[in-house]
């Protein structure tokens, strides 16, 4: 049985979600491929500009605060503002949250509201279960609208948790717009950098399943507390 080159390309295409062997029409992509690309791109853009529904936040008992970037255009142009919390938000946290909790859970849309919409219902209860298994206590959870990873520092300065967990939507790609990450930091505060944080990334139904990621976080937090670091020196 001899296989043609076309069969081989078909076979390779089944091995990857990447755009390979898409063909062309003259010097440009085929119309179908061009439309698919625009469709996927539109999904990514929708995800960035989308909003996490109020219903979801209420269902999981999360109240909302704003970051320093009040609208999406500003959020995209000024990453620094997404790392800050305005006074109104700081006040809200002071009033509504348990101070100095062992574990502070924070959720943010980041660059993908879709990711939160798709995964939060699965990862959040699994995370609570894993905290309970490891006999860890959580503070008052909340949602940061237009947050960046660095907002962990601003929250740390106000609430002083031992460990903070930020569940945040990742920059969408053309393959999936539903990927989120969990960033963890031991005693977060002003000036802390990425090398002092640990991340569990690629959380979505096609990557690490959100339930399993949530289940894994409790043990990871226990290790952070035990070793008193979440930086590059953390022994997993």
């Amino acid at each position: 049985m001899v296989y043609s080159e076309v069969d081989k390309v078909e076979w390779l295409k089944q091995k990857t979600p990447a755009r390979i062997g898409t063909g062309r029409a003259g010097t440009r992509p085929t119309t179908a491929e061009q439309l698919k690309l625009r469709c996927d791109h539109a999904a990514a853009v929708d995800s960035v500009y989308g909003k996490v529904s109020q219903g979801l936040l209420e269902e999981l008992g999360l109240f909302s605060v704003e970051s320093g970037a009040l609208d999406k255009e500003l959020y995209l142009r000024r990453p620094d503002l997404g790392r800050l919390l305005p006074d109104s938000s700081l006040q809200a946290l002071k009033q509504r949250c348990i101070q100095q909790p062992q574990v502070q859970i924070v959720v943010s849309d980041g660059l993908s509201a879709n990711a939160i919409e798709s995964n939060l219902r699965d990862i959040y209860p699994a995370l609570l279960d894993s905290l309970e298994v490891h006999q860890l206590s959580a503070g008052t959870p909340f949602f940061v609208h237009n947050g960046r990873v660095g907002c962990m520092n601003a929250i740390g300065d106000i609430l002083h948790p031992e460990v903070i967990v930020l569940l945040i939507g990742e920059r969408p790609g053309l393959i999936t717009s539903h990927s989120m990450s969990a960033y963890l930091c031991y005693k977060p505060g002003y000036g802390m950098t990425d090398s002092e944080r640990i991340v569990v990334s690629n959380i979505h139904q096609g990557g690490t399943p959100p339930v399993e990621a949530g289940a894994y976080l409790g043990g990871l937090i226990a290790k952070i507390l035990e070793q008193q670091t979440s930086g590059v020196g953390l022994q997993l």
Partner: peptide, 10 residues
């Protein structure tokens, strides 16, 4: 599927 830890925790 990759779900064992979540099931075990529950």
């Amino acid at each position: 599927n990759d779900i064992a830890k979540a099931v075990g925790n529950v």
